Computed example of a mutant assay.
Amino acid sequence: MDKAVIGEFIGTMVLTLFGSGVGCSINLKKTLAKTVGSNWVLVAFGWGAAVMLGVYSAGFFGAPGHLNPAVTISFAIGGIIDWGIVVPYIIAQMVGGFLGALITAIHFLPHFKETGPEEGNSVGIFATGPAISDPLMNFVSEVIATFAFVFTLLLLPGKDFAGGLQPIVLLFLLVAISFSFGSTTGYAINPARDLAPRLMYTLIPLPNKNKDYNWSYAWVPLVGPIVGATIAVLFVNAFS
């Protein structure tokens, strides 16, 4: 297997592992984070750090650190990468996202046993959902948030996202996206970060979980990021 594919798998697993940990920490009963209180700043920096660590992990194996099918697909559409690596990368990203969420769920298993559906044991621990349910506008929100992310990403000096200080820049870019555009839909901006953990929560028999997995919404964080990322890549290509 291509070492870079392994890197995309490991990197996405690390991203989801740390990011899902934030979701569990702030939603499940009797966690210390829940006890002392948390806020949107914790979520923003927690997921930003998760992306940073995931990209560094992917880079160790020589992967570009996409960790995101929307990035991979849009880069192929824009001619930045070869189409031949798209399917292996996406499979690696989805499997990594599933495994990262599963490991997190195992870590927090005693807290799932303490937390009922009405108390926060829901798919929202692992996957995104809208603050106001409006499918069209939720889709537009994901398009805009992902456009802002990928557009800014492409303007960073150098294209080695996994090298040097670039992953640290990505941390603050994700925090900025969270603060600016995240509070409408939870800023999935990454199908692997939403679809794979949603599938894990659906399939794994966690105790006390809410059986409403909100699959009717799942197309938004799947399609929206791909559209937003593609628009960003084509826009930058048009002026470069």
Rank of each mutant, 00 (worst) to 15 (best):
L203K: 06
N208Q: 11
V227E: 07
F161E: 08
R198C: 02
K209H: 02
L170I: 15
N190F: 07
L199I: 15
N210Q: 03
F181Y: 14
Y187G: 09
S183H: 12
A218W: 02
K209C: 03
K209L: 05
Q166C: 07
K211V: 14
I189C: 07
A196F: 03
P205H: 06
I177D: 01
W219L: 08
R198L: 00
P225Y: 10
W215A: 07
M200T: 05
I177P: 08
P207I: 03
Y213G: 10
S183V: 15
N210Y: 03
A148W: 00
T185R: 00
I226H: 10
P167E: 04
A188E: 05
F179K: 06
Q166Y: 04
Y201K: 05
V227R: 06
A188R: 00
A218V: 10
D194M: 08
P225W: 07
F147K: 11
D212T: 11
G164M: 10
T185S: 01
D194L: 13
A145D: 04
F181P: 09
E142I: 10
L156G: 05
T152K: 00
L222D: 09
V175P: 03
I177V: 13
L195W: 12
I177L: 13
L154H: 13
A192R: 09
P221K: 03
R198Y: 00
V227Q: 05
R193C: 09
L155K: 08
P221R: 07
L155T: 12
M200L: 11
F151P: 03
I189E: 08
A162N: 11
P191Y: 05
A196G: 04
T185G: 00
T184S: 15
L174T: 14
L154I: 10
D212I: 12
N214A: 14
R198T: 02
L199Q: 04
G228D: 02
T152E: 04
W219S: 00
V220D: 04
T152C: 15
T146N: 11
T202M: 12
L155N: 13
G163T: 11
S178L: 12
I168R: 01
V150E: 09
W215G: 00
A176V: 15
Y187Q: 06
V169I: 14
L173S: 10
S178E: 07
I177Y: 05
A188Q: 04
K211E: 11
S178C: 14
P221F: 11
S178W: 08
P157N: 03
A148D: 02
I168L: 15
V227T: 13
T185V: 12
N210P: 00
L222K: 00
M200P: 04
L173M: 12
W215T: 05
T184L: 14
F172D: 01
I204H: 05
L155P: 00
F179I: 15
D194C: 02
I189L: 15
